[in-house]
């Protein structure tokens, strides 16, 4: 159950960034990027179906667990290959590797709960339906009531 971003809702408040770092003992896995003065987006692990980080990991520390790209810290040797194998730059090696774990042990990932603007969600269907409805309303009313 990866986390989806609705970029039209992101307000660049960096809440996910701060919260992620806090719950992971000072090692955050989200970076909020500003696109000039017009938009922002949090960049974090996509939990790719064909996860290149798991392909590069020789020790089996990174592996697919259903939709989730999971990480078993006890198998990690800190070689750093996963960091280089991630096309999005969202696996870090800091002696050992660390990446988004979808907040294992919590009901919902912290970034999703804390997001003030509801930009992050774990329910892709609901989020995309919401975005489609909104776009249709804008098209119908043209930004007018």
């Amino acid at each position: 159950m990866p986390v989806y971003v609705d970029i039209s809702r992101c307000i660049g408040c960096r809440s996910c960034e701060v919260a992620c770092k806090r719950v992971h003992g000072g090692k955050g896995h989200v970076n909020v990027h500003m696109a000039g003065d017009r938009a922002s987006v949090p960049i974090f692990c996509h939990h790719c179906e064909e996860a290149t980080c798991t392909m590069a990991c020789f020790s089996g520390a990174l592996y697919k667990d259903g939709e989730r790209t999971a990480f078993a810290v006890e198998k990690c040797t800190g070689c750093g290959l996963c960091r280089l194998a991630c096309p999005f730059g969202v696996v870090w090696t800091d002696k050992l590797a660390h990446k988004c774990d979808l907040c294992q042990g919590r009901e919902t990932p912290t970034c999703v709960v804390t997001c003030p603007a509801n930009a992050l969600s774990t329910d892709f269907e609901a989020a995309s339906k919401r975005a489609r409805t909104r776009a249709a309303l804008v098209a119908a009313y043209g930004g007018r009531v």
């Binding site: 408040c13 960034e17 701060v18 709960v113 997001c115």
Partner: peptide
Amino acid sequence: ASEGALCSKGNA
């Protein structure tokens, strides 16, 4: 008011 959300300041 917040439905569980907190901004960066609240989180810190």
